[in-house]
Design a protein around this nucleic acid. Structure first.
Lengths: 233, 233
DNA sequence: GGCGACACGTGAGGC
DNA sequence: TGCCTCACGTGTCGC
């Protein structure tokens, strides 16, 4: 802020530039061509009033933007006071990170969909470690042998289960595994896990009798407590 | 952009304001006190060069900021072209939303902790609907009757199960329920659910024999695939 | 004293 | 027309 008193709009060193200008090229004082032949004295008051309201409005606009930038500064984890541009850069990387983690934490997990599905993906390559981190999921209708089948299939694979998660919605179930492979056959780990899960999926469709669902055989209900509008990435 | 040619620095209507100023108060033309008595003609070339590089640097700075704003515009779900200020406002609400959903999706769910725990909380009040949305979780050591006990307990309560999720880590299990209450006794819904879950927890500690864990009785391992640096909110 | 970051006032253009 | 948003050049402060 230039002036302690915000009312003192007119700076002593900043020209209001209404009719007298300095020709920068030659340095001579010239009369501005005052478009539309209004006399200076007549329209002067109105012009300066308009200019004043204009600059005030612009100041308000700047304050609005800067206030938002300030609250953004409070939302990024960094504590040091940073540049306006780098703050924005930090915000966009933050938004991207949050979107991917939110997507991975919600869409990937939790909600069994209506269609049977198998997903096996390699997560981070974990540079420095020779083992891979895999995320495998299977989504299908529930049947009583499903869990033991799953356990048997995973146990037969050369993988470690770091985390297992089962969620049910309606009569359907989705199981998500976080797996690590030992050293060695990392190349076909994804495909072998996928094949094992596919076997289970086919066994499901083979057994014609669908037993009662695992937990709560109510009518299918959808619930979405995750803001899916944010996950478009 | 004012000038097609960025080299034409000197505007006809913008005073360079190096020595002649307009006193805004009285409107009289005054001589600026020209600190350091350099002659205009001598330092003119250097001054105009410095001014040019200055304005160019400022232009680059603006372009940097605006480029970041533009990429932020691509990250916000809204499709209509919005104001700079409203764009920033949208971004900060987006960040807040993503933080809460990410936090709820990760820290709240998924990972069984080492200590037994029961959480029952009311989610949104869902204005307009008379039913409440609850999130209830129980975290304890696994035992074979745990799942059927849970089902029985929840079935005895006046709630609907919208979603159920079970995750295991080591020999421990965490179950999370998304519940809706019917009309009526919303006031004590939280406490009654909590009491039911507490019953189960006590039954666990009563049965002294811990059967083998549900899935994979390997050594306890921690995995954190959610960027916890973003969840400070 | 140059360089970078910021706030400012102002002209242009859109409804 | 009046209001609003934006880009621009400039003054100023800190390193």
């Amino acid at each position: 802020m230039y002036f302690e008193n915000p009312n003192s709009l007119i700076s002593g060193s900043m020209p209001v530039n209404q009719s007298l200008v300095m020709d920068g090229e030659k340095g001579e004082l010239v009369k501005d061509s005052g478009r539309m032949g209004k006399k200076i004295g007549v329209s002067g008051a109105k012009t300066v009033a308009a200019l004043k309201s204009h600059s005030e409005a612009e100041r308000r606009r700047r304050e609005r933007i800067n206030a938002h930038l300030e609250s953004l500064r409070g939302l990024v984890p960094s504590k040091e006071k940073m540049d306006k541009a780098t703050l924005l850069a930090e915000v966009i990387s933050q938004v991207k990170r949050l979107k991917t983690t939110a997507k991975q934490a919600s869409e990937g997990l939790h909600v069994p969909m209506d269609t049977d599905d198998i997903e096996v993906e390699m997560l981070e390559n974990n540079v420095g470690h020779s083992s891979l981190l895999l995320r495998a999921s299977i989504c299908c209708e529930y049947r009583p042998e499903l869990l033991s089948d799953l356990r048997q299939a995973i146990d037969d694979l050369p993988v470690h289960v770091m985390k297992c998660e089962i969620s049910t919605l309606g009569g359907r179930v989705k199981s998500v595994f976080l797996l690590t492979t030992g050293e060695g056959n990392n190349g076909n780990a994804v495909s072998s896990v996928r094949a094992a899960l596919r076997n289970i999926l086919e066994k499901v469709s083979a057994s014609a009798d669908y037993a009662q669902p695992l937990f709560f055989p109510r009518k299918r209900q959808r619930v979405s407590y995750v803001d899916s509008s944010c996950l478009s990435s």
